[in-house]
Simulated assay, not measured.
Amino acid sequence: MSSKSTARRRVRRGLGLALVAATAAGLLSACSLSFQDAMCSDGEYPALAVNSSGGQCVKDGQEPPEGWVRYPEGKVPEHVGDQWDEYWTTHTVDENGKIVPLPPGQ
Rank of each mutant, 00 (worst) to 15 (best):
L15G: 06
L48F: 06
L48W: 02
P101F: 05
F35Q: 13
S52Y: 08
H79E: 03
L33Q: 09
C57S: 06
L48H: 04
H91N: 15
V93W: 01
T90F: 05
A49P: 00
G26E: 02
R9H: 13
K75T: 02
S41N: 10
L48G: 01
P103N: 09
Q56C: 11
T92W: 13
R13A: 13
L15R: 10
G16D: 04
E86D: 08
V80I: 09
G16R: 10
P64E: 03
S41A: 14
S52C: 09
M1D: 15
W84Q: 06
Q56F: 07
T6F: 10
E95T: 13
P72K: 10
G14D: 03
V80F: 09
F35Y: 05
S5L: 15
P72E: 10
W84D: 03
L33H: 13
P104I: 00
R13Y: 11
H91Q: 14
A22S: 01
G74Y: 09
L28R: 02
G97L: 08
N96C: 02
S32P: 00
V93K: 02
D60P: 00
A22Q: 01
T90S: 14
E44K: 01
V100W: 08
S32T: 15
K4I: 10
S5E: 09
G81P: 07
H91M: 14
G74V: 08
W68F: 15
K4A: 08
V69I: 12
D60F: 04
P72Y: 03
E95I: 14
E73C: 00
P77V: 11
G16V: 08
